[in-house]
């Protein structure tokens, strides 16, 4: 393998997985909720998928489906829980949920506790990640143009007007939360089968904030935004490795400048026209 390929392959796999999880967060946020639980949802998918392939010998595809189902059901219930809360309280609730899941994972010996769950077989490859990413992009594209997508955006922009127009806000918010969580859990299963270790740290607040930054940086109003944000912000620190000690300073400065110049995110619906 050439040096360039050796450098790029792990970076692109990580960027692809981050993009998948960020797209899940994008769908959840499209109806309004600010979620800081998506790292936990991805982690839950990762744990379940890893346990099923490692301890029970399930095929990887079935483990992915099981992880997605767990993510969907959990997201749906979490969406139902926060539907009537204001944005701040809903955000804090998702934060509490994420931290609780991490603490639970810390205390379950069966999944490795604080020492993480290891021994996971390698199943995630570069072609697989990008095939899955292509499918998720297609889903996000169709979702954006679907009745549910329009209803979600209407709910986000003005819940009162959307309600008056006959949109079932409860259903839209919880369904989009569920779909977004399922996609995040899918990303979590892929990540666990690439890193080969799934630990409670992967579910924490700062990891969730990382996904949130991908979406906000790229733009949360069109599906290209989270893709661009996750790709750029995953690859950028790797490209900046020539300046080992300063790379996160450069990264932080660039991020701050971009947010000041483009608070709506780099890619908006208008810029896509």
């Amino acid at each position: 393998m050439s040096d360039l390929a050796a450098f790029l392959t792990p970076v692109l796999i990580t960027a692809g997985i981050n993009s998948i999880i960020a797209l899940g967060l994008y769908i959840t946020m499209s109806s309004g909720p600010l979620s800081v639980a998506h790292a936990a949802l991805a982690g839950m998918g990762g744990y379940l998928g890893a346990v099923l392939t490692t301890n029970f010998g399930w095929p990887f595809s079935l483990a992915i489906l099981a992880g997605m189902l767990l993510g969907f059901v959990t997201g749906l219930l979490l969406g139902l829980l926060i539907v009537r809360m204001n944005e701040l309280v809903a955000g804090l609730t998702t934060l509490g949920f994420g931290e609780t899941m991490a603490v639970i994972a810390f205390n379950i010996d069966y999944i490795g506790g604080a020492n993480a769950f290891s021994g996971i077989p390698l199943r995630t490859t570069l072609p697989l990640v990008y095939a899955v990413l292509a499918v998720i992009l297609f889903v996000a594209w169709r979702y954006d143009e679907s009745r549910l997508g329009y209803a979600a955006r209407a709910t986000r922009d003005s819940p009162v007007t959307a309600d008056a127009m006959g949109i079932n806000i409860t259903w839209v918010k919880s369904l989009t939360f569920g779909i977004g969580a399922a996609i995040a859990a899918l990303g979590g299963v892929l990540r666990a089968h690439y890193i080969l270790v799934q630990g409670p740290e992967d579910m924490g607040f700062f990891v969730s904030v990382g996904f949130l930054i991908f979406v906000i940086f790229g733009g949360s109003y069109v599906f290209w935004g989270p893709l661009f944000g996750a790709m750029t912000l995953t690859i950028l620190p790797e490209v900046l490795r020539f300046s080992a000690k300063d790379r996160f300073i450069i990264y932080g400065v660039l991020l701050t400048i971009m947010v000041i110049l483009r608070p709506q995110g780099l890619i908006t619906r208008r810029s896509m026209r």
């Binding site: 393998m1 050796a6 792990p10 990540r191 992967d202």
Partner: peptide
């Protein structure tokens, strides 16, 4: 950078060299 992902990525890069 205290990250599992980066540790594993760097190891994979080293192994491929």
């Amino acid at each position: 950078a205290n990250s599992r992902e980066q540790a594993v990525s760097l190891l994979r890069q080293a192994a491929a060299d």
